[in-house]
């Protein structure tokens, strides 16, 4: 049964991504992420033995999991799931900086802010509530980052996942990631 909540997801086309890092810059500017810290990052993975190589480039971030261990491990309720969607957020006024959520994330998507509380990707919730795209998706020069609601069968992300082959990262950990990579 589909829940009435929005199930936001990102679908990222690894065939289009050129690893320019604009998503990282856009995020840092939009969210004013301090020096040396990043909410998203680019992985360039080369597989095989020379000269038979293949490369995959992925823009990675928090997966806004269906079953987020960062929320269940948080001792104070500072880590929480948004009321109307699957977006996991941090309430900095409740955060003690115990770092249980950092340890619990299989994607290592969380980090400690200089002030001491934990921060991470929010799928740019402050933009998406206004109907805008997250900063990374908005900026991407190859338009390889798609954002939308998987509970809406007509959204771009739903159509892409129906029509293309895809994978998600570390699904074996059982957290139900919502960032998909088109292959």
């Amino acid at each position: 049964m589909q829940s009435l909540k929005n199930k936001y997801a990102m679908v990222i086309d690894t065939k289009l991504c050129i690893g320019c890092g604009d998503c990282v810059v856009a995020c840092k500017v939009e969210n004013q992420v301090p020096d040396g810290l990043h909410r998203d990052w680019v992985v360039e993975e080369t597989t095989g033995v020379f000269p038979h190589l293949e490369m995959e480039i992925r823009s990675e971030r928090c997966n806004h999991c269906d079953n987020p261990p960062c929320v269940s491990s948080c001792p104070t309720g500072a880590s929480f799931i948004d009321k109307n969607s699957n977006i996991t957020l941090v309430n900095s006024s409740k955060c003690t900086g115990c770092k249980a959520c950092v340890a619990s994330c299989p994607y290592d998507a969380r980090f400690v802010m200089p002030e001491g509380y934990i921060s991470k990707c929010t799928f740019c919730q402050h933009r998406t509530v206004k109907g805008e795209l997250p900063a990374c998706a908005n900026t991407c020069p190859t338009h390889c980052i798609h954002f939308g609601n998987l509970n809406n069968p007509f959204s771009t992300v739903s159509r892409l996942l129906r029509s293309r082959k895809y994978k998600a990262l570390v699904t074996e950990a059982g957290t139900g990631p919502n960032v998909y990579y088109l292959l």
């Binding site: 890092g21 040396g36 990043h38 990052w41 680019v42 080369t46 597989t47 033995v49 290592d108």
Partner: peptide
């Protein structure tokens, strides 16, 4: 076999 993996723009403190 993974020949090489380069992660750019991460290197978060403590992570």
């Amino acid at each position: 076999m993974k020949e090489i993996t380069i992660t750019t723009n991460k290197l978060n403190h403590l992570i």
